[in-house]
Write a protein that binds this DNA or RNA. Structure first.
Lengths: 125, 125
DNA sequence: AATAATTTTAGAATGAGTCTAAAAACCATT
DNA sequence: AATGGTTTTTAGACTCATTCTAAAATTATT
């Protein structure tokens, strides 16, 4: 656990946002000005294989990182892009049953319009 | 519906594979040698917004395309990379309930080891 | 047939992520 | 505290999927 890795983990844990590698790089640089982009990528990869964080792929141009490794759903507002976590009870056993085998992880993304954006749209109409 | 778009759709519908844009480009070129990469990308985007195909993001370096727009799960073997479709019954209503609202689409990817690869590993052990 | 609107094309541009080789930091042993 | 060996960091070059652009081709409209 180098000081770079500690700072990166701290950045990810400091709030509930799902940051991109680039955002993490910028935030880490505030605390460790000399840090390199490659170090951020190296450590994000290392932290994920240590199961301390989880990469969320395919929401936009760049991947994002979740401060929890435990699988859970992500609900993504199509208007404002905000990402929130959510859970489905008994989901693990449902999946196992459906695919007929154990699995190592899952990723569930639901696209919808969040309450705030629905409100805005209603006002506009 | 230009002849380029028809060929691209034909390629996607011709088998059950989840091809990358580049594979689709190569296959389309066999039927329409002059076709351009940009046309493939343009049409994949158009076809998805017409709800004729669905983009699968985040499995690897490049996106893949599914010949059905209807949301369903994808099970991805971590050993060989094969992608298979699967369905969970009543999943739509479960999600609605969990997120407390209607949604426009979802994406569910489960990472596991397929039967063939499990067999291979067993033999190796 | 003439004009306008859309699509295609080729290639340049973008940008997230990876790779590389050298410098720096770390660690265990004296 | 010096030694040597291993791991990590760094900066920048590189890759490669995807997007953008501007001109040419095609299609639709009058």
């Amino acid at each position: 656990m180098t000081k770079q890795r500690a700072v990166i983990l701290e950045v990810i844990r400091s709030d509930m946002c799902h940051h991109t590698a680039d955002e993490i790089f910028t935030l880490a640089k505030e605390k460790l000005p000399g840090i390199s982009r490659a170090t951020v990528y190296n450590n994000l990869k290392a932290l994920e294989s240590e199961k301390l964080i989880r990469r969320i792929t395919g929401d936009a141009l760049s991947d994002r990182y979740d401060n929890s490794y435990i699988p859970h759903g992500h609900m993504i507002c199509e208007e404002c892009g905000a990402i929130k976590d959510f859970n489905l009870s008994d989901f693990d056993s449902m999946i196992s049953e459906a695919i007929g085998s154990d699995f190592s992880s899952y990723e569930l993304k639901v696209r919808y319009t969040c309450e705030a954006c629905r409100g805005v749209m209603r006002k506009d109409a």
